[in-house]
Each structure stands twice: as structure tokens, then as C-alpha cells.
Design a binder for these strands. Structure first.
Length: 771
DNA sequence: TGGCTGTACTG
DNA sequence: CAGTAC
DNA sequence: GCCA
């Protein structure tokens, strides 16, 4: 059977299907219907047979002069960092599988993506360009670190200590029951319940007399107080009960969920539960917060009408060193948020939720308002500490991948256009990339890597142009199929807008990268909510506990679901309908909708979070290592570099540190294309012209920027050669080692084990997982 | 109440 | 085996 | 933190 190139023009191959491993059986020409169904014309002739690949000599032998250019350019580009990714999953492990996969991470910062030449003829014309590699090594993201760390628990502590002071004063005040003080001897015997009743009675009496408490900031709070033990009220307990009454609170002697608004206790969980007659904390109704005594005190001496707020970042105190509070609505909100004084972490969120309170109409019609300040910008990628992807490179890109939005496929319908809208004129290569005049070599038929110099035969700005239509089709398909998957890049923040989405008279576009020019549009309708939840999730990522770990898991799920939620969420109930959003998250969502903020974020953002996040940003450093290092005194990348605390790094971590910024940042799409093109050329020129090498992953899915470059390598076997033996591994090895040293370092040296090369691995991109 | 994707490399 | 990455 |  004759080998037909997989991506021949008439037959855009379904790479996904191929990767799924069903399509290619050694020696088996038949193509599963699944593949046929998805490939344009049904007859996918691509198959792989066993045999042997070309002589090793061939793979290393030639050293075309172009190669030097490539290397020089690659080098110059300062691209780097990565590892081979093996993704075993798809098929039963099968050594005969022909696919190799590798990922190249890259960084975007220096991307002088405007310059682009023919694949082969990259001249050294701009050697003056900054060599990022040299400068990018250890960059302490001081600003980031700073802003992250400074906003910390200290503010909470401040509150607490203030509270403590207030507590002293509170206790110092004369007892409400002073007259009864005479029964001093008996006081040891009074139970809290009795004492509470006594106090209430006294209060009623006083009120009957028209006396009023001076600062009744606790008015309306129906408090069940639980001291350490409930046998007898200690003097402390009595003092506190006293205090509560004095400040307008209501002491509820017997716990009644229907009446009590707050449970105040500093006791242990067990004591409280015993007193309440409950078995676990979860049995306490959600609407009743369990708070520490410090919460009660938090309103002491506070100016009325002013609510404390977790001061934001740097400007949290003025010159006088006093904390700047921010005014907020209600008069009665003069106390700390309950969650700031939660007695039990498990019940942090318990309490009267804001949105219920405000249901009473206090709030403006805000909830339905769509124009919340969308804190856009840093997509807070999982590692979000790296240099931000520069937006202008990305925006420049927006034009590269335009194509008609009509139904998929026919590759001839793929057009390139400038920023004016476009008819299908396959002739206008006006990509910014081409500004410097070098039309990129572009084979229409993707797989063709004929070592020849057929450069220039095609003009196209994007090596993968052919795939756009298909990718677009995939997206389109996704739209009609709700099994939305996430993107492991964490980059899937694109809204899956209907393909028709037109905007400002601009051409309809199919990819998010195309839409990049219309930033406000590509965001989800619930973007503000998502941002906040993501922020909280990022914080939890830096926490050590299992609990937090799963919380992150959960938030992630909820956030993904929210992204594809088509409508603006306006009610708790609606939020709950989203898969993955439970009661807690729904409440958080409502809080965000109503206030634009999420108090829990401030609460969780403790001192260590910022530093831990930074440490975790190092490739090879996860939760545990990060905390270990933190405990050893490391706070910054410099600390790590200095091996503060005597920490040791694995080789992967060293590399991760060295290329911190690179790994943590994304490159604009065209840069990925550039690198890929070079790699592809190396593969063709130096290794084997028959190699089928294609770019996958986020690039293929049309993202505007890429965190890495996913590459699929395989080889047709129509010539009877195989992937077995040393050949393919050698190919890969050669490919890798042909990269400039810097690449090799990070890319190969650190993360790749030789063992990897002993086998043939399969790489799959995320988009394939689901179907 | 237990489970949360699943696999492979490093040390 | 624990830790990490994808 | 969610879900079955």
C-alpha cells in the first residue's frame, strides 16, 4: 500500500484520532471509521508499518550549513527549557507505537517575534538583540513577592492584638451585676446558664428603667457563649457575658439554632460540641458562625459606621501609621467579619451570608450589573509569577490566524488577511511576522518535510495554517458538546463563544487569538467571579494541608464549569446549578457579585503565601518542598540560589531556578511557530526528511500564546523502515542535541532521562482526552 | 464518608 | 517511597 | 470543597 501523506491537502488527517492509537496498526491499512468520519474525505491512508528507519549514519551525518544558522538563531532567540513529556495513556503501552512527543517550554519576554525568516535562511542579522538567556537566569520577582507577602496575616494580627487590648479594658469595666458581687463565695457555683439568665434578667430590668448601654454595638447579636467548661462559669466567662450584655448583645442561655446568631467560644471543638449537644461541627447550622471572643471585642471602641477592611496591599496605612479603614455601607457593621475570628477553620464560612442580608434591599440593583470591574490582566496562570505575557506581542498576533469563519475545512478556504477584513484571498500574507519581508516557508501539506530547498514556494505566515480550520472545527464541535475539558495549561480561559460572535463590525473570527483584539469580549460573562475564585484558589495552592489540596481541586473544577456557564449568574440558586459549585462556593459567588470582593481571600492570604508561591514556581518544587524550604528560611529565589538553610536542589530544580522566568511565562504564538519551524527543519535536514513532525497543543488549538510547544513526531513506514530499535530514539536524541546548548541544558539535561529514549512514547494533547 | 485522572521520573 | 509534573 |  502506498503511503499517503497524512496531511495531504485533500486529506487533513485527524491527528487526534491518530494519537488515540486506534488508527494505526502496524501493517494495517484499514482506518477505523472514527477516523474516517472525522477526516474530511474519509480515506485516510496513513498507516504505519514496522520496519527499520534509515541508517543511523544518515541521521547524524550531514551538517548542512543552514544548520548553523538554525543553531545560531535558536541560540540567539534564547528559547529554552523543557523536557520530554511522555504521555502513555492513550494506548496500551506499545513499543511499536510510532509517536514521539516532546514539549518545549519557552519564554516570551524577549520575543522579538517580528523577525522571521525562511526556515532555513535565518541570517545573523540582528545579533545585537538581547540575549535573554544570559540575563534571565535568576530574577527575583521582587515586586511580585513583595506584594504577595506583604498583604498578610499581620493585618489580621493587628486586629487581634487590638482586640486583646480591648478585652482587657472590657474586663476592667465594672460588672453589670456589681450589686450581687456580694455573693462572692457562691460565685464559683453558678453555672454559665444561670449566670446568663441572671444577666438577661438584669438587662431587662435596666432597660425598663430606661438605661441604655453606651455602645450597643452588639445589638441584635444573639450570642451563645461557651467558655472552657460549662460546669461553672469562671470569672472570665462571667466577665465576658457581662460584656456582651453591656454592649447590647443578647445572651442566649440555651442553644437554640433558631434564635442564636453567633456562637462565641474559644473552647475546643469537643467542649463546644458537648455543650451544644451536637456530634460534629457540621451539625451546627451554616448560618451560625462560630467565632472567638476576639470577634466580640472587635467592635469595641470602633467608630460607628466604619467597618474594618483588610487594607489593600501597599497603601494600607497612612503616614501616621494608623490603619486606613475604608468606609462601608451599613451603620451596624462595626465589627470584624466573622470569618476573621472563626473558632474553627472548618466553619470559616459559616455565618449570615452577606447576600442574604442584603436581600433586604440594602444593596443597589448591583447584582445584575455586568460591569463589575473586571480585574483582567494577569490570567494568574497556575504559576502566575512569571513575567506577564506582553500583550502587545499577542495583539500583533491577532491577525496571523485569521481565516474565514465559514464551515470548516477545505483548506482552500483558509485565508490570510491583514487587519482589514478579508475576503478569501489566499494571497495576502500580511502577517506582522512578515513585516521584515521574509515570507516563511510554508508547505501546504504539513507533513512534508522534504529536505529540499523548496523554500518560498508557499507564502504563509503560519506553519500551521492548515490546521486552523480543523482546530476551529474542533472548537466548534466543543461548543456543541458540553463535555468541556480544561486545558492543562490553565490557559483555557477563553470563552467558548459561538463562532458567529461578531464584534464591532470586525470580521467574525474563530479563535480566541483572533478575538484578542477585542479583549473585553473574550472574557467570560462571569469573569469577575472567576477571577476572585481563582485568586483564592491560588492562595490555597500555597497551603500545605491535604484539605487545601482538595479545595484547590474543587475550585478548579468549579471555575472551569463557570467559564462555560453561558449566562451571568444572578442568584445563589443559579450558582448552585453549576456543576462543581456547592453551597460554599455558591455563597462565595454571591458575595463577589454583591460586594465585588471575597473576604476569604484576605483571610487566607497569610504571610507565607507569597513566598511559598514563588518557591513553588520553581519547576520541580511543589507544595512540600516549598514549605520545607520556607521553614529553612527561604523566601525568595535569591534565597534559594544562596541555598539558605542548607537546602539542596535536584538537578531539575536547579534548572527550574535558572530559568524561572522562562518557564513561568508564555510566549506569543508566533514565537512558538518560529521555534517549531526551526526544529522541524532540523528534523528534516539533519535527521530524516520523512519524519512527520507537527506542532500540537495550545498552538494547534489556536491559542494566542503558548506556555510550551508540543510536538508530535512520527514517521511513515511505507518504505519499510520502522520506529523500532535505536533509530527513532536516536532521532530524538539527535534532535535534542542539535539544539543549542542552552536548550539542551534545560530541555534535555535536566528533565530527560536516557531511559526515555529507549522507548517510543506517545504524546497526547489535552484536546484529545475526551473524545 | 470516601473519592477526587493517571502515569512516570527523580532521588 | 515521597514528591513532582503533565 | 464537591459529589455520589
Amino acid at each position: 500500500m502506498e503511503y499517503t501523506h497524512p496531511v495531504s491537502e485533500q486529506n487533513p488527517v485527524d491527528v487526534d484520532a491518530r494519537l488515540l492509537g486506534r488508527s494505526y496498526r502496524p501493517g494495517g491499512p484499514e482506518v477505523p471509521s472514527s477516523v474516517q468520519g472525522r477526516s474530511n474525505q474519509g480515506g485516510d491512508n496513513f498507516h504505519l508499518a514496522t520496519g527499520n528507519i534509515g541508517a543511523p549514519g544518515k541521521m547524524v551525518a550531514n551538517e548542512p550549513k543552514e544548520r548553523k544558522h538554525l543553531e545560531a538563531t535558536l541560540h540567539e532567540k534564547g528559547r529554552l527549557a523543557s523536557h520530554i513529556v511522555t504521555s502513555p495513556t492513550i494506548m496500551e503501552k506499545n513499543d511499536s507505537l510510532p509517536n514521539l512527543g516532546m514539549k518545549i517550554l519557552s519564554h516570551a519576554r524577549n520575543a522579538s517575534s517580528s523577525r522571521r525568516g525562511k526556515v532555513i535562511k535565518l541570517t545573523g542579522e540582528d545579533t545585537t538583540r538581547a540575549r535573554v538567556l544570559d540575563t534571565s537566569s535568576i530574577t527575583t520577582p521582587a515586586s511580585t513577592a513583595d506584594s504577595k507577602t506583604r498583604f498578610s496575616r499581620s493585618s489580621i494580627r493587628d486586629n487581634k492584638s487590638a482586640s486583646a487590648r480591648a478585652a482587657g479594658q472590657g474586663k476592667a469595666e465594672p460588672s453589670l451585676l456589681k450589686p450581687e458581687k456580694s455573693k462572692k463565695k457562691v460565685k464559683e457555683l453558678i453555672t454559665p446558664l444561670e449566670y446568663a439568665k441572671l444577666l438577661q434578667a438584669k438587662l431587662a430590668e435596666r432597660e425598663a428603667q430606661g438605661k441604655r448601654s453606651t455602645k450597643p454595638y452588639l445589638r441584635g447579636k444573639k450570642i451563645f457563649y461557651c467558655g472552657g467548661d460549662m460546669q461553672y462559669a469562671s470569672s472570665e466567662t462571667r466577665g465576658r457575658m457581662d460584656y456582651i450584655i453591656r454592649h447590647g448583645g443578647t445572651l442566649v442561655p440555651v442553644f437554640d439554632p433558631a434564635e442564636v446568631t453567633h456562637i462565641v467560644t474559644d473552647a475546643h471543638e469537643k467542649s463546644l460540641l458537648r455543650v451544644l449537644g451536637l456530634r460534629k461541627l457540621g451539625d451546627i447550622p451554616e448560618h451560625i458562625p462560630t467565632v472567638k471572643w476576639s470577634w466580640v471585642l472587635s467592635g469595641f471602641g470602633r467608630r460607628n459606621g466604619v467597618r474594618p477592611r483588610q487594607p489593600k496591599s501597599a497603601d494600607r496605612s497612612d503616614e501616621k501609621g494608623t490603619t486606613v479603614w475604608q468606609d462601608d455601607e451599613s451603620e451596624d457593621e462595626v465589627m470584624d467579619y466573622e470569618l476573621m475570628h472563626a473558632s474553627f477553620k472548618e466553619r470559616l464560612d459559616a455565618g449570615p451570608s452577606l447576600w442574604r442580608k442584603t436581600d433586604r434591599g440594602k444593596h443597589k440593583e448591583n447584582p445584575l450589573n455586568l460591569d463589575h470591574p473586571t480585574n483582567r490582566g494577569n490570567p494568574s496562570g497556575s504559576r502566575g509569577l512569571g513575567a506577564a505575557v506582553n500583550g502587545d506581542a499577542t495583539s500583533k498576533l491577532s491577525r496571523i490566524s485569521e481565516f474565514t469563519s465559514d464551515k470548516l475545512i477545505s483548506r482552500d478556504s483558509v485565508v490570510y488577511a491583514d487587519n482589514t477584513s478579508l475576503p478569501s484571498t489566499p494571497q495576502i500574507p500580511r502577517s506582522p511576522l512578515d513585516e521584515k519581508a521574509k515570507p516563511n516557508r510554508q508547505e501546504r501539506s504539513l507533513g512534508h518535510v522534504d529536505g529540499g530547498e523548496d523554500v518560498d514556494s508557499r507564502i504563509c505566515s503560519d506553519p500551521l495554517a492548515e490546521f486552523y480550520a480543523q482546530a476551529r472545527a474542533e472548537r466548534y464541535a466543543e461548543l456543541h458538546d458540553h463535555s468541556v475539558d480544561s486545558d492543562s495549561d490553565g490557559e483555557d480561559s477563553i470563552q467558548k463563544a459561538p463562532p458567529r460572535a461578531s464584534h464591532k463590525g470586525e470580521q467574525k473570527r474563530g479563535f480566541l487569538c483572533d478575538a484578542k483584539g477585542a479583549p473585553e469580549r473574550i472574557q467570560c460573562i462571569n469573569q469577575d467571579v472567576i477571577d476572585k475564585l481563582e485568586e483564592l484558589m491560588e492562595i490555597h495552592k500555597a497551603k500545605p494541608s491535604e484539605e487545601d489540596h482538595w479545595r484547590v481541586f474543587s475550585y478548579g473544577k468549579a471555575i472551569r464549569a463557570l467559564r462555560s456557564h453561558p449566562t451571568r449568574i444572578r442568584s445563589f440558586e443559579e450558582a448552585r446549578t453549576v456543576r462543581g459549585v456547592g453551597d460554599k462556593t455558591a455563597r462565595k459567588i454571591m458575595e463577589i457579585l454583591e460586594t465585588g470582593d471575597l473576604r476569604r481571600i484576605a483571610y487566607e492570604r497569610t504571610d507565607d503565601v507569597g513566598a511559598i508561591s514563588i518557591l513553588q514556581g520553581i519547576y520541580g518544587v511543589g507544595r512540600n518542598i516549598a514549605h520545607k524550604w520556607y521553614a529553612n528560611g527561604c523566601r525568595t529565589l535569591d534565597d534559594v540560589q544562596a541555598r539558605i538553610g542548607g537546602i539542596t536542589l535536584t538537578s531539575a530544580q536547579e534548572t527550574g531556578l535558572k530559568y524561572y522566568d522562562d518557564i513561568n511565562s508564555r510566549m506569543p504564538r508566533n514565537e512558538a511557530a518560529e521555534i517549531f519551524t526551526m526544529i522541524k527543519a532540523v528534523a528534516a535536514l539533519d535527521i530524516d526528511p520523512k519524519l512527520f513532525i507537527e506542532i500540537m497543543g495550545s498552538y494547534r488549538r489556536g491559542k494566542a500564546d503558548c506556555g510550551d510547544i508540543d510536538i508530535l513526531i512520527t514517521r511513515p513506514t511505507d518504505d519499510g523502515k520502522t520506529h523500532h530499535g535505536n533509530s527513532v530514539p536516536a532521532c530524538l536524541h539527535y534532535l535534542l542535541t542539535s539544539l543549542p546548548q542552552e536548550y539542551y541544558d534545560a530541555f534535555y539535561g535536566s528533565c530527560v532521562d536516557k531511559a526515555l529514549l529507549q522507548k517510543i512514547y506517545v504524546f497526547r494533547t489535552h484536546s484529545m482526552i475526551l473524545k
